[in-house]
Write a protein that binds this DNA or RNA. Structure first.
Lengths: 271, 271
DNA sequence: CGAGTACTTGAACAGTGTCAAGCTTAGTGG
DNA sequence: CCACTAAGCTTGACACTGTTCAAGTACTCG
């Protein structure tokens, strides 16, 4: 427990630094977003690997930044597809909804990720995207992106990579859903979140869950009661500390063991 | 039962016609494959929507057709990524394998489908592809495809659509794995196969399963015993007739009811 | 501060998984 | 062509994980 508190202190420092960094960049970017000045370029977002001039071309097609408040939809299933959305700051969930009223969460999305890729095939969105916290997105008109991809090979390649990664990621999630137990799923989920926060400069061992237990359950193919019980179990075992939405990972290595014991590829923890 | 036999007769006729059709096309195509003359152009394969001249450009980059015998690998996880593969005839499964020796089937692939899309992000294949029957594929060097996409907007758009569809499809499969019972999963699986056979000109109500019960189970997140039991149950209820690998769907509407009762979107049966 | 939502926990139950045995089929080699 | 073998399949009995239903608690937001 004492160890946990020490760690937490270090984390707070780190988070403060990162927050400052982000704040600076946001200030510098007003009033128009600029891929060329965007901190997400290191994060597999579209501008990754582009040179100065090319980035500016990408800036040219990106519509003004849009704010999406917590609880608001970015798009709904059935909406006509015009644009992809790069998530600048915030947190989204995407979900399918069936007529019977059951929602199924297909993903949680963080800074730097691209939303709407599954809509290209239909010319309409086939899932819903809703902000789980106040967020900011860059709207990228798809037809213009296609044009630009024809001019800038590096952009084209990066775009293909992003789509491909989405496919590979889904396959890993399918693996999780097919053959993991509740505790393994949850451990994999926490490790995944941890890694994604870390890449973005946040603490990998302490973070706020933006989603409810029910949403986690929906994503992992479990009922919310099972999620709750499993979190409690992890806490009893000293692996984590949970206080409502605040999560501290006290023993990341042992958490990884839970996943790797039966699924040594570790593929399931990938972003 | 008598109804089933009548249906079967009709199906055999249909299948013969289709086989003939395919045979003609195959003959016409020797010794080099030609997208411009390929029957798969109606099937969401890459040449879909391309005009004559454009198709020929695509022909230009496609390497000679390759045969893959049943049981042979088309590629393995870890192989360097150079090409995508369009499946001309035959049947493949793709699967992840973990070090612990567990395989996990991520997809079954039929004529007209594109394999290897998940490898773009890593420059190496992250799953294995193995032929479940003697097959023929067109190898499409990826870097040349990217070049050509920059020249032919219609090809670029079609390629993006194919990737997007793969993502949307995976989301539907995740939905199946997250919230369906064994009988619903299997019903959805059979309907899916049925529709894919139908689109390809084969009977939607009678076909050979190319995969084992274990592979079906792996794909659907069930054990092979459960697959076997559920098939037996469906047979007892008169929904289907199974004889080893030969499958007859006697009551497609009722099969659909099983899926739609609890999951009315029906999304899960999509291609 | 109050109402509604989210969360935790318990107990009973159902659906799959596990283990085991026996059967069928396909493929191999004599 | 037949016999043999290995792989695939079916079925039963039982165990166990996760779900369901229910009750109570804690938080959040207006």
């Amino acid at each position: 427990m004492i160890g946990a508190i020490h760690e937490t202190g270090a984390i707070n420092n780190m988070q403060q630094k990162v927050h400052k960094l982000f704040a600076n960049i946001v200030d510098a970017r007003y009033p128009k977003p600029a891929c060329s000045a965007c901190d997400l370029r290191d994060l597999w977002c579209l501008p990754m690997g582009l040179k100065g001039q090319q980035s500016k071309q990408l800036d040219g097609i990106i519509n003004r930044r849009k704010r999406v408040k917590r609880g608001e939809y970015l798009y709904r299933a059935g909406d006509p597809f015009r644009s992809l959305y790069a998530l600048r700051t915030g947190f989204f969930k995407t979900f399918l909804s069936s007529e019977s009223g059951q929602d199924l969460v297909t993903g949680f999305h963080m800074t730097g990720e691209l939303l709407g890729l599954d809509a290209i095939c239909n010319d309409s969105h086939c899932c819903n995207a809703i902000a789980l916290e106040d967020s900011e997105i860059c709207e990228i008109p798809y037809s213009e992106l296609e044009c630009l991809c024809r001019e800038i090979p590096a952009l084209q390649h990066q775009f293909h990579k992003i789509m491909s990664r989405e496919i590979a990621r889904d396959h890993n999630l399918m693996a999780l859903l097919s053959c993991m137990h509740a505790d393994e799923r949850l451990a994999a989920f926490l490790i995944n979140l941890s890694q994604r926060f870390q890449v973005r400069g946040y603490s990998p061992v302490q973070f706020h869950l933006r989603m409810t237990r029910g949403e986690i359950g929906s994503y992992l193919g479990l009922k919310l009661e099972t999620v709750s019980r499993t979190l409690s179990k992890f806490q009893d075992e000293g692996l984590i500390s949970v206080q409502h939405k605040l999560l501290i990972l006290n023993d990341l290595p042992r958490l990884k063991q839970i996943v790797e014991r039966n699924h040594s590829s570790g593929a399931l923890c990938k972003s």
